[in-house]
Simulated scan of single mutants.
Amino acid sequence: MLYLVALPLLVYLSFKQKYKESVPARFFLFKNPPFKTKDGVWFHVCSLGEAKALKPILELVSDKDIKITTVTHTGQTEARKYDADVRYLPYEILLPFWMKKQKLLIVLEAEFWYILFVLARYRGTKVVLLNARISDKSVKKYLQFAWFYKKLLSNVEVIYAQSEVDKNRFLALGAKNIEIIGNIKLAGKITKTKEYEKPVQECIVAGSTHDGEEESILKSFIQYKKQVDAKLIVVPRHPERFESVYALMKNYADRNSLTLCRFSESQNFETDLILVDAMGELNNMYAISDIAIVGGAFREDVGGHNPLEPAFFGCKIITGKHFHDQKELFKYVHHVQYVEADEIHKALLATKDLPMSMVEEKINLEPIIQKILE
């Protein structure tokens, strides 16, 4: 009934740039047929970060018939880079008509879909949770519905949790067969795709920023630039925000007599402000930057973003205090400043006396994958 009531909204969303592919595929099965074969290894991820985390795993199971489902368009784009049969995960009530039996369904992080799990088990597919977590922000809600999650998790054969805290939270929900493996994102190979010449001035990159964060960063940068010869590169998290972020940056540039360019039009990094309005460039920006302001943690409703990439390239990292979804990764990264949005200027000034960030942990995925595929 809710699906029928929501149809007008779904049709409306189908015309929006962000959802024009994912909504028709997920809610109407448009250009989203079932997998071509049965008895493969099926990975389900939500979005871009989880899709990227698949790379070292897929290298260990390259001889298998691999399938991948995603929820978001950015996750789908990343998944299509692999040698795999890739689909959007349909809305749950459509799964009985779409889903074929596979040998294994490996679900990453916190993608807990009741009908998906029940149907997989009913059709003889082994369900495994990998890199499983329950965030600080969500745990209270999970516990309120513990009776439901106990039923859902009873369909899972084994849970590979990120941390001891996550294991205890799953136990509180009635889950069994839980092992702690750490965060699989530590196994990912971090690379840059292009080589750019590092600017002469101090270079600051604001990576994976969300609405509201760019303004705080721009205000702080304007103050900082009065004291230090620096330039700011802004890489918004979502491509549909490129235009609005550019308008904001232009406003600040005009008011403060700063130069501004779009990365898509000029890649010489000569201006004071640069908007990276292209996908897949964030690591390339970290590689030429001295300081990284990692977005997503200055807003309580986002939960932070991956700090491993800027740490790998030796950036001095500044981020917000709301990094609850990335707490396990930040545990392995040293020399990070955690500040409120109005403290970014102070943190920028403090970087001159701080060492570069670094990562001191690795994870070996091979024994985990071998155990899953037994």
Rank of each mutant, 00 (worst) to 15 (best):
F323P: 00
T37A: 12
E340Y: 13
L94R: 10
K176N: 14
E164Q: 15
V245D: 01
S264T: 10
E265F: 11
I159S: 00
L308M: 12
K140N: 14
L260P: 01
N284D: 15
L365H: 07
L218G: 01
F312T: 09
L105M: 09
W42C: 02
P24F: 09
E195G: 03
A350S: 15
N168Q: 14
E366D: 12
Q144K: 14
Y286I: 08
V139Q: 09
L152G: 02
L108D: 07
D166Y: 00
V45G: 01
L258C: 10
Y91C: 06
S208L: 02
S216M: 07
S220H: 02
G314N: 06
P34C: 03
K18C: 12
F145L: 13
Q76L: 15
V139A: 13
L365I: 10
L13F: 14
Y88C: 02
M249D: 07
Q267P: 04
Q201R: 15
V71T: 13
G174W: 01
G280W: 10
I291Q: 00
T70A: 09
G207H: 04
F28I: 11
L10A: 10
V228L: 07
M279E: 04
I184Q: 00
G207S: 12
C203P: 02
H334Q: 15
K36F: 05
G296Y: 04
V118Y: 11
D63R: 11
L248H: 02
T74H: 08
K327P: 00
E157C: 09
W98C: 06
M279W: 06
A347P: 08
L373T: 11
K137A: 07
V139L: 07
S208M: 09
V127D: 01
A172L: 14
L153R: 01
V294Q: 08
L2C: 09
G304I: 04
L218P: 00
L108T: 04
G49I: 01
L2P: 05
P310K: 01
I178H: 03
Q337A: 12
Q201N: 13
W147H: 11
A230C: 13
L273C: 08
D211E: 15
L173A: 04
A53K: 00
L13D: 01
F43K: 00
E197K: 13
V23F: 09
F330V: 03
